[in-house]
Design a binder for these strands. Structure first.
Length: 931
RNA sequence: GGGCGUAUAGCUCAGCGGAAGAGCAUCGGCCUUACAAGCCGGGGGUCGCAGGUUCGAACCCUGCUGCGCCUACCA
């Protein structure tokens, strides 16, 4: 029999198995296989990114689902891939080029820059996929996709052209969110709102041809340069007379109208008069539409004031302009006052630059017609959300959708397939086509220029569930694996991604892209804070897997240019570094903590606990292997076929029964995406049942080398092997590596598959559920615990054998216990064990009450009477309380009348039990007094 | 402003209508030949606060408070 190392070394084991699985082709699903399909497409991580805890979580959950379904004989396919991540990647490469060559992307030019990005991708693109392999992910690698692959680019063009032809994509001049740093438009979702302390400036505008002044209040004084009206409420008596007149706009030589607008103006707020800047504010824009106001764009793409501003302000940034404008107003005596005011500002999700609403010509997706079916699909249950609470959030968002700005002024991405004709007039419809056109669709002109912009990355991501399977071609893959079974991702991209896949999937495929959406929580640090490199509270999954010393952590952080404070925090948080725990322990931790509706506060000590769990399983296996001499799995299987129950001992029957229940619990938990329940059930079985009890109970049988003990020994070997092997299969989806390693060592029947990965997932075998064995075991365990308890209280070491008498009034139970006296004596380290029916405890014994059984432990000469009285009194006290509680219920007429029968029966049973136990304890106490 | 989540043992979290649980931490005892990354035992909670529904509430309802997140154009 193989000798295993004393401690489990995950690092050594894990990578070896991944290679074996990969080379054996176990990860690959055949689209033509005649099995029920089960498919997941991975949420594609950024191609140039590296694995963080969020990825580790999503990867773990998806791999659990896929491995589990694969073991249930589904045609399980998990499609890997990466996303080109337009803005993020372009920014990274821009910074890199700037640092290494001192050039901007404009210095390089578009073609050259895009080449650099591809080079960057070639160099850094494989990292995250390699890291997914370290996690043990059973991804179908030959199906790997990248959003800028030819096939997927084709899909993007097809989708764009079709939507355009259907009138669902249009080009329009609108107010969009503009990031001056990224120099691109952003969708509403890419703007993050933050509450800040700002000011409300009250500015006096002189009314034309009058001495009156109209004071407006604004949080953005610099935009006054672009005002084209001042609005008051049409029914506001204070200002009514001014409507239709004009004010002189300070700092400019313009006069603008005073208008009445009930929509824009809240009489109670500020001064009751609002400056209107249609070029730079959404509400003002709409007001401008209503009143036919002029729109002035004040800023250039770099966020500086342009030629529409008075000369003295041109070229200033927004912040500079604000200072200057305020200073000038003050100098002119037009600044009435400044009030502190809280407001919310929009920032670019990527670079935190304040986003400006800017008037700009962009491409949009008309979302209304797409949202309808996406709502209906969820209402009708074609797609369901788990946890269910997300349904509401999804619906709310879907019902309040605005059109989606999809053009980005970037170079990295799918270029918009629209061409403009030099011969056509400005503003004429462009030629939108799948193939690069030679002629203008409108006039046949040949001088065509393609639109400079690229599409929002989420546009291509929205096609992911079908573009990856070959769409627009009608492939076998699509037929087999679409709709996918589950979309598993973080709730933070519910709108960005899930919602858009729903809309686009339904539109192009006429079927939902996935049947279930499982949204997992965010991984945060121990204190509930978001993990961030700036804070220095990041736990890197790879450090957890492979281990890292404090020096390594600090070094890595320093290399990344981490701030001092964060490095100090790293030292504080990981004084000992991070021990190597292996991917299994990390996966188990994430699964165990993935309770619905709660963020995952990841703490190192939890991971450590589950690393210990892996070690526990490992050592249980070591023990088993040391005791498998002469064991033959086929022979056991044959013997087990006939009259199994008679051949098995109580512990055998008990552990097999518990195993069945565990199998059911795990399966049910996984069906409900309750990964924490699955983890807990298997943890409890392996540690608290198999290791703590069964192995100890089986030792006598396993170590009995006599001829008469042979059958028992073979049976114990078989049961232990079965329990271990089955537990491994139950645990395999969560901890793939150690279960494979262990499973390989356990003797199995001939013809068993070569890898645990391709075995069947355990199912409940009702014939092995044994209520009687569980009940008898409960008494035996109670007895043993009672003896241990006394030992502990009297500090009697295990080396001292104790003599015990069990009083078991009930004959049938007595017989069953008697049959197990050897086992009880062994675990309780008893000298003699006597069973009687008689109610009187022997002299010189202390009595513990375990259900109907009195456990009498002989402790002559060692009894500490005072301590013992205290113990008994405490016990009686508890029972008194319980009795009073139960009596209260039973004495309550309403309870008796309305509570269900079984509850009443249960309460009566409790009362009887409490009274009976108290009687025995009181007797015991009296005897103590006589001692 | 609206919405959602959450509040349970020192810490991190299960439980979500019928006698309060786990892991870690803590305390006491064990080198018992699978495992000291271990074994055995103990202590520790008026389940955020206030009402209500119910025979019965940690669990359902209402209000309040704290924390977190999403969303929104209040200048």
């Amino acid at each position: 029999m193989t000798e295993l190392p004393k401690a489990y070394d995950p690092v050594q084991v894990e990578q070896r198995w991944y290679r074996v699985w990969l080379e054996s082709g176990y990860f690959h699903a055949d689209e033509a296989a005649p099995k029920a399909p089960y498919s997941i497409v991975i949420p594609p991580p950024n191609v140039t990114g590296s694995l963080h805890m969020g990825h580790a979580l999503t990867a773990t959950i998806q791999d659990i689902l896929i491995r589990w379904r694969r073991m249930q004989a589904y045609n399980a396919m998990w499609l890997p891939g990466t996303d080109h991540a337009g803005i993020a990647t372009q920014m990274v490469v821009e910074r890199h080029v700037q640092r290494s060559e001192g050039k901007s992307r404009h210095d390089l030019g578009r073609d050259e820059f895009v080449k650099r990005v591809w080079a960057w991708k070639a160099k850094n693109g494989g990292r995250i996929t390699e890291q997914l392999k370290v996690m043990g992910c059973s991804l179908d690698w030959p199906r790997e996709r990248f959003t800028l692959d030819d096939g997927l680019s084709l899909a993007v063009r097809e989708a764009f052209v079709r939507l355009y032809e259907e009138g669902l994509i249009y080009r329009a001049r609108r107010l969009i969110n503009w990031c001056a740093r990224c120099r691109t438009a952003l969708s509403d979702l890419e703007v993050e709102h933050a509450d800040v302390d700002g000011s409300l400036w009250h500015i006096a505008y002189p009314v034309a041809d009058s001495d009156e002044r109209l004071t407006v209040a604004t949080t953005r004084p610099e935009t006054m340069l672009g005002d084209t009206a001042v609005a008051v409420h049409p029914e506001d008596e204070r200002f009514r007379h001014l409507i239709g007149r004009r004010v002189r706009l300070p700092l400019t030589d313009r006069e603008i109208p005073i208008i009445g607008d009930a929509v824009l103006v809240d009489r109670e707020f500020g001064t009751g008069a609002v400056k209107v800047t249609p070029g730079h504010d959404e509400n003002d824009f709409e007001t401008g539409q209503r009143h036919g106001l002029e729109m002035i764009a004040l800023f250039d793409p770099a966020g500086r004031l342009n030629e529409n501003a008075p000369v003295e302000f041109r070229g200033l940034t927004v912040a500079e302009a604000r200072l200057q404008v305020v200073a000038r107003l003050e100098a002119e005596g037009l600044l009435v006052k400044i009030e502190p005011h809280k407001l919310s500002i929009g920032q670019c999700q990527r670079c935190e630059t304040v986003v400006e609403p800017m008037l700009s010509l962009q491409w949009f997706v008309k979302t209304g017609p797409l949202a309808g079916p996406a709502i209906e699909a969820v209402e009708s249950g074609k797609t369901r959300f788990v946890p269910e609470m997300w349904t509401k959030t999804y619906m709310h968002w879907m019902r309040n959708l605005k059109d989606w700005c999809i053009s980005r002024q970037l170079w990295w991405g799918h270029r918009i397939p629209a061409w403009y004709c030099a011969a056509c007039p400005e503003g004429a419809a462009p030629t939108v086509a799948r193939e690069t056109p030679q002629n203008c669709a409108r006039c046949g002109g040949t001088e065509l220029t393609q639109d400079e912009d690229v599409l929002d990355t989420w546009f291509s991501s929205g096609l992911w569930p079908f573009s990856t399977l070959g769409w627009p071609k009608e492939t076998r893959e699509l037929k087999t694996f679409y709709p996918t079974s589950v979309m598993e991702t973080g709730y933070d991209i519910l709108f960005f991604w899930v919602a858009r896949m729903m809309m686009l999937g339904l539109h192009f495929m006429k079927k939902v892209p996935f049947r279930t959406v499982f949204l997992h929580a965010m991984v945060v640090d121990e204190r509930g804070d978001k993990m961030s490199k700036v804070r220095g509270n990041v736990i890197d999954p790879l450090d957890v897997i492979h281990g890292a010393t404090l020096d390594q952590l600090v070094q890595a952080a320093t290399d990344r240019g981490t701030p001092e404070a964060a490095i100090a925090n790293i030292r504080k948080q990981f004084p000992e570094g991070i021990p190597a725990s292996g991917a299994d322990a990390l996966r188990f931790t994430l699964a165990a903590m993935a309770a619905h509706g709660r963020n995952i506060r990841l703490a190192l000590n939890r991971i450590e606990g589950y690393r210990h769990f892996a070690n526990k399983l490992w050592n249980a296996t070591r023990f088993a292997l040391m005791n498998f001499e002469g064991y033959d799995a086929d022979r056991f299987a044959d013997e087990a076929r006939a009259d199994l129950r008679a051949k098995l001992s109580l512990p055998d029957r008990w552990i097999l029964s518990r195993l069945q229940r565990t199998a059911r619990e795990v399966d049910e938990a996984l069906e409900g995406f309750k990964f924490n329940d699955a983890a807990q059930a298997i943890y409890r079985f392996v540690w608290s049942e198999l290791c703590d009890w069964y192995i100890e109970l089986a030792k006598p049988a396993l170590q009995d080398r006599s001829t008469e003990g042979e059958l028992r020994r073979r049976m114990a070997q078989g049961v232990l092997a079965t329990a271990l092997e089955t537990a491994c299969r139950l645990l395999h989806p969560i901890m793939p590596f150690i279960t494979e390693e262990v499973w390989q060592h356990v003797p199995k029947r001939a013809g068993t598959p070569a890898s645990i990965m391709v075995t069947m997932f355990p199912t409940l075998d009702p014939t092995l559920v044994d209520e009687e064995a569980e009940a008898t075991m409960a008494v035996a365990q109670g007895t043993i615990v009672a003896v241990r308890n006394l030992r502990s209280e009297y500090t009697i070491g295990g080396a001292v054998p104790l003599d015990v008498t069990l009083i078991v009034p009930q004959a049938e139970l007595r017989a069953r216990i008697a049959a197990e006296s050897g086992m009880i004596a062994a675990l309780g380290r008893l000298g003699t064990l006597t069973l009687t029916a008689d109610g009187e405890p022997p002299a010189g014994t202390l009595v513990s009450v375990v259900g109907e059984v009195s456990v009498c432990v002989k402790l002559a000469g060692q009894i500490d009477r005072a301590a013992e009285e205290k113990r008994i009194d405490k016990e009686i006290g508890k029972l008194e309380k319980s009795r009073a509680q139960v009596l209260g219920k039973l004495g309550n007429e309403a309870f008796m009348a309305r509570a269900p029968e079984e509850v009443v029966v249960e309460e009566k049973r409790r009362l009887a039990e409490a009274e009976e136990r108290m009687a025995r304890l009181r007797a015991s106490r009296e005897r103590l007094a006589r001692l």
